[in-house]
Amino acid sequence: MDSIVSQIHSLAQSTGEAGRLEIQRALRQTQVELQSPIEVLFELVNSTLGVSVVRMSTDLGLFGILAKSSESLSVNKIAEASGASPDLLARILRYLASTNMIMEAGVNQYEANKTTHVFASEKGEAMVLHGFDFHAVIMRVMPDFFKETKYQDVTSNKYIPFHKAFNTNLSCFDWLIQHPEHFTPFQKAMTSIEGSEWTEGFDLLESEIKKLPSTAAQSSERTFLVDIGGGHGHQSIQLGQKYPNVLGRLVLQDLPTTVENLAIEGVKVEAYDFFQKQPLVGAKFYYLRRVLHDWPDNDATKILRNVAEAMSTDSRVLIDDTVLPDTEAVWQGTMADLALMISCGGKERTRRQWELLADAAGLRVEQIHSYVAATYTSIVVLALK
C-alpha cells in the first residue's frame, strides 16, 4: 500500500495542473467504487457535520493555535489557549484528526497539517465564515424553494433561495452591503482569489501591451483597459505590477459605495453602475472578472450591450470567468454553478452559453484562453459582430 501511495505522489509531482486534476478524479472514483452502501450514507451525513465542526473550530481559533505551534500540543494546552472544555475539545480534535483536518501526534496530542494551515489563513477563515453563515443558510431552504416553484430553472434574480433564506426583498449584493458581518468575509474571500495568472500565455494581451510606450500616458491617449466591476482594484494593481507601462492607462469602475475615497497610483477610479451607459468609449480592452457569472442571462446581456455600444471596431471584451465543459465537469465547477444560482441567480456557462449570450448583446466569441484547468477559468474574448 505504501508503495502505491508513493507512486501516486511521484506521479502528481511530475505532472501539470490538468494531470493533477485527473489523478484526483480517478482517486475519487476509486473511493466511490470501494465504499459500501452504508459508507456512502455515512459520508453524506458527515459532509454536513464537518462544515459545522469547522465553523465551531474557527470560532475557537483551533486551526490558528495549531498552525502557530512548531510542535504538537496536548488537549489541555489547546484548551488553555481556546477557552474550551478539555473534555469537549478532546472529542472535537479527535474528529478533526479522523477527517484529516489536523494530525494526531499521540494520545491527546495534535499538530497542524496542510489542511490546518489552509483553514488558519485569512483566506481560509473568510471562506469558512462566508460558506457557513451565508451559503449554508441558503442551502437549507433550497429544497423547499424549488418544491414551491415546481422545480423550474432560475432565470431571474427577483426571487431566489437567497430571498427565502434571509426573508428580504433586497438583491443579494445590496443585502450584503447592509450586513457587514456577512459582507466582510465575502470581500476577503473574493479578494483572496485575485491574481495575474490570467495574463500567462495570453498572446493577445501581451502583444498589445508591447505596443504601449514606456513613457507616461498622455491625457489624450486611448484608455488601454477598463476594469469593470473591479471592486477595490486588486486586478488592476496586479496588472500594473506585472506590466508597469500600462499604469496611467487603466481605469477601475465600480459602484460609488465601493470606490468612494479609493486611490490607486496609476489607475483612474470611476464610480459606475454597469447597468448604465458605458462612459468610456473606444478603450482597447473592457475587462470583467467574475462579474457576469453573478447574473442571469437577461441581466448579463444588458451589461454586455452597454459595453458593446462603447466599443471601437478593434476593442475587445475580456470576460475572466468559468467555461464549463459539455461533459465530465469537475465538482468545483458544478458546485459553483449551483451556489451562484441559489445566492444571486447567476450561473457558470458552457462555451455554447457564452456564445448565445454574446450574440444577444451584438458580440461574438473570438477566442477562449483557458488558464486554470482545475476550475475551467478562462478569458472569453468578445469582439463586435
Rank of each mutant, 00 (worst) to 15 (best):
residue 284 K to M: 05
residue 238 Q to S: 15
residue 282 G to H: 01
residue 267 V to Y: 07
residue 247 L to D: 09
residue 272 Y to Q: 11
residue 269 V to W: 02
residue 262 L to S: 04
residue 272 Y to M: 07
residue 285 F to W: 11
residue 283 A to G: 07
residue 264 I to M: 08
residue 246 V to A: 09
residue 240 G to W: 03
residue 284 K to A: 08
residue 240 G to M: 06
residue 238 Q to E: 15
residue 277 K to T: 15
residue 256 P to Y: 00
residue 280 L to M: 13
residue 257 T to A: 13
residue 277 K to A: 15
residue 253 Q to K: 03
residue 245 N to W: 01
residue 237 I to M: 09
residue 265 E to T: 05
residue 274 F to A: 12
residue 250 L to F: 03
residue 274 F to P: 13
residue 275 F to P: 12
residue 235 Q to A: 11
residue 242 K to V: 10
residue 243 Y to H: 13
residue 270 E to T: 01
residue 257 T to D: 14
residue 267 V to M: 06
residue 286 Y to A: 09
residue 253 Q to S: 11
residue 266 G to I: 02
residue 284 K to C: 05
residue 237 I to L: 10
residue 259 V to K: 01
residue 279 P to H: 04
residue 244 P to F: 08
residue 249 R to T: 12
residue 233 G to K: 02
residue 259 V to S: 08
residue 256 P to H: 03
residue 250 L to P: 12
residue 260 E to P: 00
residue 266 G to D: 10
residue 247 L to G: 05
residue 280 L to I: 15
residue 262 L to V: 06
residue 253 Q to C: 14
residue 279 P to T: 07
residue 266 G to S: 07
residue 265 E to R: 01
residue 265 E to F: 00
residue 254 D to R: 05
residue 282 G to Y: 00
residue 253 Q to H: 06
residue 286 Y to H: 04
residue 285 F to R: 02
residue 251 V to Q: 10
residue 261 N to D: 15
residue 282 G to S: 02
residue 285 F to H: 02
residue 268 K to P: 04
residue 271 A to H: 01
residue 237 I to E: 14
residue 248 G to E: 13
residue 236 S to K: 01
residue 237 I to V: 15
residue 262 L to A: 07
residue 233 G to D: 13
residue 272 Y to W: 12
residue 252 L to W: 08
residue 236 S to G: 06
residue 249 R to S: 12
residue 233 G to M: 06
residue 246 V to T: 14
residue 244 P to M: 09
residue 279 P to K: 04
residue 271 A to F: 03
residue 280 L to W: 00
residue 240 G to V: 05
residue 263 A to M: 04
residue 275 F to E: 14
residue 255 L to M: 11
residue 257 T to P: 02
residue 255 L to Y: 04
residue 271 A to N: 03
residue 274 F to K: 08
residue 258 T to F: 01
residue 256 P to I: 00
residue 257 T to W: 03
residue 256 P to R: 00
residue 275 F to H: 15
residue 270 E to C: 08
residue 280 L to P: 04
